[in-house]
Computed example of a mutant assay.
Amino acid sequence: MRRILIFLLVIATMLESCKEKERQIISKDKSDPAIKNNGSIKSEMPSDLIKSELIGKIAPDFKLKTVSGIEFQLSSVKDKFIVLDFWGSWCVPCIEDFPKMKEYYNKYRNEIEIVGIAYLDLKRNWKLSVKKHELEWVNVIHDKAKEQDLTITYGVDSFPTKFILNKKGEIIGKYGSTDDFYKKIDELMNQE
């Protein structure tokens, strides 16, 4: 029953994301306060308003399978900032964000490890998407059979959702698909 409720919640989130994209395409009225200067609807709250009880705490550890079938454990990443990117091959905003993610990965690959976590995805679609978009970072799939639902553990309520972890493994930020995420990455890398 719990899995059905989670599935329905994810479907509702996906539909809302699609509606938001449709509003972005339809709306051109920049006088609307919900519209950014570039004419797109502001679909997320500013990152400083997205709160999580996990901010400042060690990120919950997990083990998931990579595209090549190897088990990846979060705690195995040492001495790097970590980005956890919750996404799905079915998520249009997730896919649209890949070019910028790739740019940042290439720019900071020695300081940052990105871990893409595909959720509610078919293994075939997930693998094809990783290959098609040439995602070089660690990519794992959240198997529905897992007892630990990472979207609940991490408080993921929309896709994409990104978490930044410091080198100690503490969560320092939770972001949607906003420029605030990239600004924070630049800020952290400039402090190094």
Rank of each mutant, 00 (worst) to 15 (best):
T178Y: 03
I117T: 07
I41L: 10
E22F: 14
G56I: 00
S76C: 04
D85E: 12
Y108N: 09
K168A: 14
D180L: 08
R23S: 08
D61S: 15
V67Q: 14
H142K: 10
R23K: 15
I82F: 02
S17G: 10
P93Q: 04
T161P: 00
G69Q: 11
Q24N: 10
D180V: 06
E187Q: 08
F72M: 04
K123S: 10
A118F: 06
I112H: 02
K174A: 05
M1I: 10
R23M: 12
K146G: 04
D186N: 11
S43D: 06
I141G: 11
D48T: 11
T66M: 12
K102A: 12
S47Q: 04
N110L: 05
R23W: 11
I95G: 14
K78Y: 05
K42L: 02
N139V: 00
K132T: 14
D32L: 09
K42Q: 10
N139L: 00
G176M: 02
S68Q: 13
S129V: 15
I164S: 02
I25H: 06
F7H: 13
I58F: 02
I11T: 14
I117F: 13
L74N: 04
P99Q: 13
E111Y: 09
K162S: 07
L15E: 06
E44A: 06
W87Y: 12
S47I: 03
K36F: 13
K36Q: 10
I58C: 00
I70T: 14
A145M: 06
K78D: 06
L8W: 09
L128W: 06
W137D: 03
F159Q: 01
K65S: 15
N190E: 13
S177A: 12
C91F: 05
P46I: 01
S177W: 00
K107I: 11
E16D: 11
M14R: 15
H133A: 12
L188H: 04
F181R: 02
